[in-house]
Amino acid sequence: MAPKASSFVGPGALDVSFEVNGHPATVHIPPHRTLLDTLRETLGLTGAKKVCDEGTCGACTVLVDGKAVYSCMTLAIACEGRSVETVEGLARDGQLHPVQQAFIDHDAFQCGFCTPGQLMSIAALLRSNGAPSEEDVTRAVTGNLCRCGAYPNIVAAGVAAARKAGRA
């Protein structure tokens, strides 16, 4: 049930519906539940990682209505009626997304814990910008920490994916 316009819902749980990776989903959650916890614990989508839970690392990055956001700083209830995309939805019909393939080709990860977030940031960029430059890719992942220091390869992979996507 969507929160009614002029009154309060909660603090108990209520139904919230949104689209996840193209499929409709309804979850029964209290208003204070974050999108990250909802994805990981309620929907079993553990691709987005919880590293800081306070908007300081980027590992939880997902797309809401096509834009990269931190799901740990997004309330699930605020996603009512919107479309959410996670790393699990990037590949289509068994075919890796160009940025996923580019990450493998360029060794753009080490431990891989930041990877889902990095991928989503670049995927959002590719959607809004058909021919991003190296600077654009760098800017897109400025909000995604990688403690292993895979940055040079992450940027290289992003640029390569953009080229490939541009050609396709």
Binding site: P3, A5, S6, S7, F8, V9, P11, G12, P31, H32
Partner: peptide, 15 residues
Amino acid sequence: MKPFGYARPRSVAEA
């Protein structure tokens, strides 16, 4: 986070 009630008004007046 402590649980809370939540509202999403449609107008500034309501808010």
